[in-house]
Protein backbone atom coordinates (compact mmCIF):
# COMPACT_ATOMS: atom_id res chain seq x y z
CA UNK A 1 0.00 0.00 0.00
CA UNK A 2 1.45 3.39 -0.90
CA UNK A 3 2.66 5.42 2.06
CA UNK A 4 0.78 8.43 0.82
CA UNK A 5 -2.62 6.82 1.13
CA UNK A 6 -2.07 5.62 4.68
CA UNK A 7 -2.25 7.86 7.71
CA UNK A 8 0.61 7.25 10.20
CA UNK A 9 -0.82 4.80 12.72
CA UNK A 10 0.16 3.88 16.27
CA UNK A 11 1.94 0.67 17.31
CA UNK A 12 -0.29 -1.32 19.64
CA UNK A 13 2.40 -2.56 22.00
CA UNK A 14 1.67 -3.42 25.65
CA UNK A 15 1.62 0.22 26.80
CA UNK A 16 -0.81 1.36 24.10
CA UNK A 17 -3.09 -1.58 23.37
CA UNK A 18 -5.30 -0.92 26.43
CA UNK A 19 -5.61 2.78 25.50
CA UNK A 20 -6.62 1.99 21.93
CA UNK A 21 -9.01 -0.76 23.08
CA UNK A 22 -10.59 1.90 25.25
CA UNK A 23 -10.89 4.34 22.34
CA UNK A 24 -12.56 1.61 20.29
CA UNK A 25 -15.19 1.44 23.03
CA UNK A 26 -15.37 5.23 23.04
CA UNK A 27 -13.71 5.47 26.44
CA UNK A 28 -10.57 7.38 27.35
CA UNK A 29 -8.37 5.20 29.56
CA UNK A 30 -5.12 6.38 31.10
CA UNK A 31 -2.62 4.83 33.51
CA UNK A 32 -3.09 4.84 37.27
CA UNK A 33 -0.58 3.66 39.87
CA UNK A 34 -2.03 1.12 42.30
CA UNK A 35 0.76 1.85 44.78
CA UNK A 36 0.20 5.61 45.18
CA UNK A 37 -2.91 6.47 43.14
CA UNK A 38 -1.07 8.82 40.76
CA UNK A 39 -2.76 9.21 37.38
CA UNK A 40 -0.51 9.69 34.39
CA UNK A 41 -0.51 10.20 30.66
CA UNK A 42 1.34 9.39 28.38
CA UNK A 43 1.84 5.77 29.48
CA UNK A 44 5.16 4.90 31.01
CA UNK A 45 6.94 1.82 32.36
CA UNK A 46 6.98 3.12 35.92
CA UNK A 47 4.85 5.45 38.00
CA UNK A 48 6.02 8.99 37.32
CA UNK A 49 5.42 9.88 40.93
CA UNK A 50 6.55 6.95 43.12
CA UNK A 51 8.48 4.91 40.50
CA UNK A 52 6.70 1.66 41.30
CA UNK A 53 5.86 -0.74 38.48
CA UNK A 54 2.25 -1.40 39.49
CA UNK A 55 0.28 0.48 36.89
CA UNK A 56 -3.29 -0.18 35.87
CA UNK A 57 -5.86 1.72 33.78
CA UNK A 58 -8.62 4.13 34.72
CA UNK A 59 -11.23 6.11 32.79
CA UNK A 60 -11.12 9.93 32.55
CA UNK A 61 -13.78 12.47 31.49
CA UNK A 62 -14.42 13.23 27.82
CA UNK A 63 -14.72 16.98 28.19
CA UNK A 64 -11.88 19.39 28.86
CA UNK A 65 -10.27 22.72 28.07
CA UNK A 66 -7.79 23.56 25.32
CA UNK A 67 -4.39 24.12 26.98
CA UNK A 68 -2.67 24.94 23.73
CA UNK A 69 -2.84 24.21 20.01
CA UNK A 70 -1.10 24.20 16.64
CA UNK A 71 -2.50 25.12 13.24
CA UNK A 72 -0.72 23.68 10.21
CA UNK A 73 -0.88 24.95 6.66
CA UNK A 74 1.65 22.43 5.44
CA UNK A 75 1.63 18.62 5.58
CA UNK A 76 4.64 16.94 7.18
CA UNK A 77 3.52 13.55 5.93
CA UNK A 78 1.84 13.17 2.52
CA UNK A 79 -1.45 11.76 3.88
CA UNK A 80 -2.29 15.04 5.58
CA UNK A 81 -1.99 17.14 2.44
CA UNK A 82 -5.58 16.52 1.40
CA UNK A 83 -6.87 17.73 4.78
CA UNK A 84 -5.15 21.09 5.09
CA UNK A 85 -5.41 23.34 6.96
CA UNK A 86 -5.41 21.16 10.06
CA UNK A 87 -5.10 21.81 13.73
CA UNK A 88 -4.16 19.84 16.79
CA UNK A 89 -5.39 20.81 20.23
CA UNK A 90 -3.88 19.75 23.54
CA UNK A 91 -6.84 19.18 25.84
CA UNK A 92 -6.58 19.34 29.62
CA UNK A 93 -8.88 16.70 31.13
CA UNK A 94 -7.91 17.35 34.75
CA UNK A 95 -5.66 15.31 37.11
CA UNK A 96 -2.67 16.34 35.02
CA UNK A 97 -3.96 14.46 31.98
CA UNK A 98 -3.53 16.18 28.63
CA UNK A 99 -4.30 14.55 25.30
CA UNK A 100 -3.63 15.79 21.77
CA UNK A 101 -6.07 15.28 18.91
CA UNK A 102 -7.21 17.01 15.78
CA UNK A 103 -9.70 19.84 16.13
CA UNK A 104 -12.77 19.28 13.99
CA UNK A 105 -14.12 22.83 13.93
CA UNK A 106 -12.83 26.02 12.31
CA UNK A 107 -9.05 25.91 12.86
CA UNK A 108 -8.81 29.71 12.77
CA UNK A 109 -11.11 30.05 15.78
CA UNK A 110 -9.19 28.05 18.40
CA UNK A 111 -8.57 29.86 21.67
CA UNK A 112 -6.77 28.61 24.76
CA UNK A 113 -9.15 27.59 27.57
CA UNK A 114 -12.11 26.95 25.28
CA UNK A 115 -14.17 23.92 26.26
CA UNK A 116 -14.14 20.88 23.97
CA UNK A 117 -15.53 17.35 23.94
CA UNK A 118 -14.21 14.09 22.57
CA UNK A 119 -15.17 12.77 19.14
CA UNK A 120 -14.14 9.23 18.21
CA UNK A 121 -13.12 8.37 14.66
CA UNK A 122 -12.99 4.68 13.73
CA UNK A 123 -10.07 4.28 11.30
CA UNK A 124 -10.08 0.48 11.02
CA UNK A 125 -10.91 -2.64 13.10
CA UNK A 126 -8.15 -1.95 15.58
CA UNK A 127 -7.64 1.78 15.62
CA UNK A 128 -9.97 4.52 16.69
CA UNK A 129 -8.55 8.04 16.94
CA UNK A 130 -9.59 10.70 19.43
CA UNK A 131 -10.48 14.19 18.16
CA UNK A 132 -12.09 17.25 19.70
CA UNK A 133 -14.82 19.73 18.93
CA UNK A 134 -16.41 22.60 20.83
CA UNK A 135 -19.12 21.69 23.34
Amino acid sequence: MSEISVRPLPNLNQLYAPYYRGLKEHKILVQQCTACGHIQWPPRDLCFSCHANQLTWTEVPQVGKVYTYSVYYRAFHPWFKQHLPMAAVVVDLGEGVRILGNYLGNVEKIVCEMEVKAVFEDINNEITLLHWETT
Binding site: P10, N13, L15, A75
Partner: peptide, 13 residues
Protein backbone atom coordinates in the same frame (compact mmCIF):
# COMPACT_ATOMS: atom_id res chain seq x y z
CA UNK B 1 6.77 6.00 21.52
CA UNK B 2 4.82 9.09 22.51
CA UNK B 3 5.51 10.59 19.11
CA UNK B 4 4.60 7.49 17.12
CA UNK B 5 1.55 6.48 19.07
CA UNK B 6 0.01 9.74 20.22
CA UNK B 7 1.19 12.48 17.86
CA UNK B 8 2.16 11.32 14.37
CA UNK B 9 -1.36 9.97 13.69
CA UNK B 10 -2.65 13.52 14.18
CA UNK B 11 -0.10 15.08 11.87
CA UNK B 12 2.01 16.45 14.73
CA UNK B 13 5.42 15.47 13.38
Amino acid sequence: DFRTNLEFPYGMI
